[in-house]
């Protein structure tokens, strides 16, 4: 229980997908223009992580590593992710057309979001760690918690950036820095702030 809690908090703050590993940066920068869509995308990423990561955990633990097929992991993981995203898209379209309309274009793009694939690849590394290590993922429950924590971390990051960008609309930024340039600096400063959490030990 203690381990699970520690893993959860660490994956939100200290091992934040965006600020510690730069994962999911492309959609992070492209979509964070306003808080509402960011929230939708963040929720969708969390949801997809929550489904794909435990599935990939089971694949890795019971199929890939006993049969020594580790070199197939890239293809298998990405196939699972692409298939699940397609499935989620179809289900959402059928049962909640309003949510589908608001997420619309972002849903298929989640398949190529590095945060999803990155989560699975980190999980693959962390299975090998000692169970005492705070980062270790040793059970199915751990993989669910890691997925949830990483997703929430990503959601917090994108919402914060969107809020800052909404405020920045009215500021006078030097011309060549406008848009992309200043956004990078904002993310850099946020990453500096998030570094404070890296000493966090529970």
């Amino acid at each position: 229980m203690e381990h699970a809690f520690s893993l959860f908090i660490r994956s939100i703050f200290a091992d934040n997908m965006v600020f510690a590993f730069f994962l999911g940066m492309c959609s992070f920068l492209a979509v964070s223009k306003n808080v509402k869509t960011s929230l939708g995308l963040g929720a969708a990423v969390t949801f997809v992580l929550l489904i794909t990561l435990p599935i990939n955990y089971l694949l890795q633990k019971y199929i890939l590593s006993p049969m020594e097929l580790n070199y197939l992991s890239f293809i298998l993981f990405i196939a699972v992710i692409a298939a699940i995203v397609q499935l989620v898209e179809m289900i959402v379209e059928k049962y909640s057309p309003s949510l589908y309309a608001s997420l619309g274009i972002f849903l298929p793009l989640i398949a190529v979001n590095c945060a999803i694939m990155g989560g699975s690849l980190f999980m693959q590394q962390r299975i090998l760690l000692e169970p005492e290590n705070v980062k270790a993922i040793t059970s199915f429950g751990d993989s669910v918690i890691y997925a949830l924590g990483s997703g929430i971390g990503w959601l917090i990051a994108i919402c914060c950036l969107a809020a800052i960008r909404e405020k920045m609309e009215y500021n006078d930024v030097p011309k060549p820095l406008q848009g992309l340039g200043i956004t990078f600096i904002e993310v850099g400063l946020m990453a500096l702030a998030f570094m404070c959490f890296s000493g966090l030990n529970i």
């Binding site: 060549p176 820095l177 990078f184 600096i185 400063l189 990453a191 500096l192 570094m195």
Partner: peptide, 25 residues
């Protein structure tokens, strides 16, 4: 060496690139 500096350096590259390629943007 920290991750944050990579972002700020890329921002500087963008700044430099945009100021010499004014017509492209």
């Amino acid at each position: 060496v920290m991750p944050a500096m990579a972002l700020i350096l890329v921002a500087c590259v963008i700044w430099f690139h945009r100021s010499i390629n004014k017509e492209s943007k």
